[in-house]
Amino acid sequence: MFALNFLLRRIVQGIVIIGLVTLLIFTLLRVVPGDPVRIMLGPMVAPSVMEQVATELGLRDPIPVQFGRYMLQVMKGDLGHSFIRNAQGGSTGGSRGGETFDLQNRAKVSELIANTIPYSILLAALAILFTVLISFPLGFVAGVYSGKWPDRLSLYVSSVLVSLPNVWLGIVLILLLSAWGGILPAIGYNGPSYAILPALVLAIELAPVMIRSIAVSVANSLQENYVSVGEVRGIKRRRMITHHVLRNASIPLLNLFGIQVIGMLLGSLFVVEYIFNYPGVGLLMINAVFQRDFPIIQAIAMLSSAVLVCVNILVDLAATNIDRRLQY
C-alpha cells in the first residue's frame, strides 16, 4: 500500500518534470534565432510562401498556444511529423523549391524514433556491460585495500581515464583498432560488431565515476561496526565481504548508477553516435538540430528526460527492496 502510494506520487512528480523539460526545450527552440521554414523550403522561396507554410504548421502562433496544442497531441500518443524528412526516408527541403515540399508526406516522428532506438539500446547495454566489467574489479579491489597500492593505482587510472575527451578517444581508437589494427569495424552500422568500439568509448568515460564510488562505498562499509563484530563471531572476512559488505555498499552505488551514470550515458551516447556515425537516436537528434527539425528534437528531449525520471523511480524502489529501513 505504501509502495503504491509512493509510486503514484513519484510518477506524478515525474510527469511534471518531463512536462517542464519539454516546455524548456520547446520554448528555447522557438526563442533562439533560426527559422525551420527557411531550411524546409530552401533559400530561393518567396517570403509569402514561407509565411504561408509557417502558419500552416502553426509556427506563428504564440508559444503557449503552440505548446498546449503539442501537449494535447502528445497525450493522444501522436508525436507529430518531421519538418524535413519525408515518409520515404529521404529529406525534402534544402535546394528543392516550395512546390515540391509536401506537408502531407512527412515521416512520423514516432516511426523515426522506433527505427533508431534498437541501435541505441544495443549500444547502451553494451556500454553498461563494459563499464561494469572495467569498474567492478578495479573499484572493489581498491575498496578492500583502501589506502594501499591497489587503491592508489585505481585512483590514478580513473584520473587518466576521466581526462580523455570522448571525441578524441573515439578517433584514436578508430585509428588504432580499426584503421591500423583491423580488429574492429568502426564507422556506421553493419552488424552488432559495429557497436563494440563506440561502447568501449562510452565505458571508458563512465568507468572512472563508478570505480571511485565502488571503492569509497566498499571501504566505508568495511569500516562499519558489524564487520568487526562479524569477525569476532568467527565469520571469515571473505564471506563477510561477499555476503554482507557488498549488499550494504550497493545502495549508494545503485543511487549513483541510476542518477549519475545513466545521465552521463544518455548525454554521451549522442556524442559517440555522432563520432561513429552510428545510426541511433543520438545521430537522429543531432541531424535534426542542424536541420531545425523541431518535432524530432522535442520528442527525443522528452524521451530522454522520461528515461531519466523512470530510472530514478526504479532506483528508489530497488533501494527500498535492498534496505527495508529506507522510507518510501
Binding site: I17, I18, M285
Partner: peptide, 24 residues
C-alpha cells in the same frame, strides 16, 4: 528545487546541442 529537478532530468549535452545547434 523543482527547477533544478527539471534541469537535472535532461543531460547537459542534449540541452547544449539544442541551444547551440539552432542558434549561432
Amino acid at each position: 528545487m523543482r527547477i533544478t529537478d527539471a534541469q537535472m532530468a535532461i543531460p547537459v549535452i542534449i540541452l547544449a546541442i539544442t541551444i547551440l545547434g539552432v542558434s549561432r
